[in-house]
Simulated scan of single mutants.
Amino acid sequence: MTTTLALSATFGSDLLRGIGAILLYGVVGLVLMVVGFYAIDLATPGQLSKLVTRGLPNAVIVTASGLLSMAFIVVVAIYNSASDLAGGLISSLVYGLLGVIVQVFAVRLLEWVTRIDVGSTIESETFAPASMVVAAAHLGLGLVVAVSIS
């Protein structure tokens, strides 16, 4: 007895569509992450990229948590719109951009309420515990914004 493995007639086109979707969502995700980084950089005192390059620990913590929170937003925006490719790409981009804006304003508001001097915190050459509060605010608010997309 012989068993034959047969692929469906649409296997090739389905595979190509899936590859295309991955590439397109990857581009949308990358664009949103870059926009998110620059939004965090713009809203944070000092130039984060230079502070991170210098290896300042608090700048690294705040930037990493900000990027991770942006990733939450982007992932949920893509996940919730993946059933229709064209509509999914557009809604991911729109929800992702809106999420970035809400995230930046919410974190700045929380920093204002807690009275943390973010500028001096991220420019410090030594670890400042306040950077963990800012990081937690980024992560927590990123999750809140991400879930609100769903």
Results as ranks from 00 to 15, higher is better:
residue 44 T to H: 09
residue 46 G to P: 08
residue 49 S to G: 05
residue 52 V to A: 00
residue 54 R to L: 14
residue 55 G to T: 01
residue 55 G to P: 05
residue 56 L to N: 00
residue 59 A to D: 01
residue 60 V to P: 00
residue 60 V to M: 06
residue 60 V to D: 00
residue 62 V to I: 14
residue 63 T to G: 02
residue 63 T to D: 02
residue 65 S to T: 11
residue 67 L to A: 09
residue 67 L to W: 00
residue 70 M to E: 07
residue 70 M to V: 15
residue 70 M to I: 06
residue 71 A to P: 01
residue 73 I to N: 08
residue 75 V to L: 02
residue 76 V to T: 13
residue 77 A to E: 06
residue 78 I to W: 03
residue 80 N to E: 15
residue 82 A to D: 12
residue 83 S to W: 01
residue 85 L to Q: 13
residue 87 G to K: 08
residue 88 G to E: 07
residue 90 I to R: 05
residue 91 S to R: 08
residue 92 S to G: 10
residue 94 V to D: 06
residue 95 Y to K: 07
residue 95 Y to A: 13
residue 97 L to Y: 04
residue 97 L to E: 10
residue 99 G to R: 03
residue 103 Q to K: 02
residue 104 V to T: 15
residue 104 V to Y: 03
residue 105 F to G: 09
residue 105 F to D: 04
residue 105 F to L: 12
residue 106 A to Q: 02
residue 107 V to I: 08
residue 108 R to Q: 15
residue 111 E to R: 08
residue 111 E to K: 07
residue 113 V to L: 14
residue 113 V to P: 05
residue 113 V to G: 04
residue 115 R to M: 14
residue 119 G to K: 09
residue 120 S to P: 02
residue 120 S to R: 08
residue 122 I to N: 06
residue 122 I to L: 11
residue 122 I to C: 10
residue 122 I to V: 15
residue 123 E to K: 01
residue 124 S to I: 12
residue 124 S to E: 11
residue 124 S to G: 14
residue 126 T to M: 05
residue 128 A to W: 04
residue 131 S to W: 00
residue 134 V to R: 02
residue 135 A to W: 00
residue 137 A to L: 13
residue 138 H to I: 07
residue 141 L to T: 08
residue 141 L to E: 09
residue 141 L to H: 06
residue 142 G to F: 06
residue 144 V to P: 01
residue 145 V to M: 11
